[in-house]
């Protein structure tokens, strides 16, 4: 089996112990970090995504794969950044659960999936007021803003947050795209409140963001 296939396999199997050794070995043998990431690790993550969608893999296994990717990125990220490579992280995602809502689990899954797919993720937590979203966007300059609401009673806070972002003209020129999600949130609602994107679940969210950014 080739080195790339081995790397891919560590991700699919969630082999946290093995991935670091293997990534280091690949680098020692002179492979470029972006090749290790793109052709090795990411292709493993794609398999994970497909199997999850087909009910052949389940959340705990996907989480383990994501953690494995995380460990690999700890080695690769400084190299990718320091060498000013063309291939940088795919984008910066800022995530939060809207005001009045303290649900955390779904958002954490989303964070994991984006990280595992090569995005840089900033999680600003739960019960985040519209103003706090605006401040965080100014500070971190993401290109994707993700909002979560798990209650119908807090969904209006999503609309308020979108308004606050537009009120500060942060979405002007399409600099950022807003994606919303959470159990009660529907695609129609996303359109109604003028969110750019809707993620039915964590992996679907990654997919629509990639499409919107023209990745792959």
């Amino acid at each position: 089996m080739s080195m790339m296939e081995d790397l891919s396999k560590t991700i699919i199997e969630g082999d946290i112990g093995g991935v670091k050794t293997l990534v280091q070995k690949a680098l020692d043998e002179g492979m470029e970090p972006e090749v290790v990431l793109g052709e090795g690790l990411m292709s493993g993550m794609e398999v994970v995504g497909k199997r999850f969608a087909a009910d052949e893999m389940f959340i705990p296994e996907v989480m383990l794969s994501a953690r494995t990717m995380h460990s690999a990125l700890e080695i690769l990220r400084p190299l990718l950044e320091s060498e000013q490579k063309e291939v940088k992280m795919k984008g910066k995602v800022l995530l939060g659960t809207v005001e009045g809502d303290i649900h955390d689990i779904g958002k954490s899954l989303v964070e994991m999936m984006f990280t595992a797919n090569g995005f840089e993720v900033i999680d600003i937590g739960i019960n985040v007021a519209p103003d706090a979203f605006v401040e965080a966007i100014k500070k971190h300059k993401p290109n994707i803003v993700g909002m979560s609401a798990l209650l119908t009673s807090t969904m209006p806070a999503m609309a308020e947050t979108v308004e606050a972002i537009d009120g500060s003209e942060l979405r002007k020129d399409g600099k950022i795209k807003i994606i919303v999600g959470g159990a009660p949130v529907t695609e129609e609602y996303a359109e109604e409140i003028k969110a750019d994107l809707y993620g039915e679940n964590a992996l679907e969210g990654v997919k629509v963001v990639k499409n919107a950014l023209g990745i792959e």
Binding site: T152, M155, P156, P184, V185, Y189, I193
Partner: peptide, 11 residues
């Protein structure tokens, strides 16, 4: 009956 319309009057 939280249908996710986002409208509290409806609910």
């Amino acid at each position: 009956v939280a249908t996710g319309s986002g409208k509290s009057e409806k609910e």
